[in-house]
């Protein structure tokens, strides 16, 4: 039985300060364009985007931050792998991939966000894209795989 997704994100989202999604979208677009110009390789850009928010984003709920709702489905038998599926995505408003960038995972920042957030709660995970609407699929699907639970560690030693 799949765990129930908490709805608390809605309440939080209603209470935080918000900004226009277009400002967010266009700023993100500017970052991707800069990366594409600087790094030239689509593969490298994917890597950077994945890295980008992992440190700053400590706790993130999709609803809380982006105002979209993701559903969690497709749990495997051991309960270590699941999929996050969502259809609305403010990042891709106005976006179409040109022929030269077909290998680009435009939303790769989200996989970094998910990975970073789970790392903060001591779960080492692997996150990969299964479906991407920019590549012609009908939804976005992120596959999240739990690799191991990291035991909690103190960041410093007592005698230091």
């Amino acid at each position: 039985m799949a765990p129930v997704v908490p709805r608390s994100g809605d309440a939080v989202f209603a209470n935080v300060e918000r900004v226009n999604a277009e400002l967010f979208t266009l700023t993100y677009g500017a970052i991707v364009r800069q990366l594409l110009t600087d790094l030239e390789e689509v593969e490298e850009v994917n890597k950077q985007l994945d890295q980008i928010l992992i440190i700053s984003m400590k706790q993130v709920g999709f609803k809380m931050f982006l105002g979209v709702t993701a559903t969690v489905t497709n749990w495997d038998v051991e309960g270590t792998t699941c999929s996050l599926v969502f259809e609305d995505n403010p990042l891709v408003e106005f976006v179409e991939l040109p022929d030269t960038c077909q290998g680009l995972y435009y939303c790769n920042i989200l996989s970094g966000v998910v990975r970073g957030a789970l790392e903060m709660v001591s779960m080492k995970t692997e996150v990969s894209w299964v479906r991407d609407m920019l590549h012609g699929d009908d939804a976005y699907e992120l596959r999240v795989k739990l690799i191991k639970q990291v035991p909690e560690e103190y960041p410093y030693k007592d005698d230091e």
Partner: peptide
């Protein structure tokens, strides 16, 4: 449509840091 201010602030800080 809106996103939370913190999401934008994080994104902007990444732009500056990068």
């Amino acid at each position: 449509q809106e996103v939370s201010l913190s999401a934008f602030a994080f994104l902007f800080s990444e732009l500056v840091q990068y």
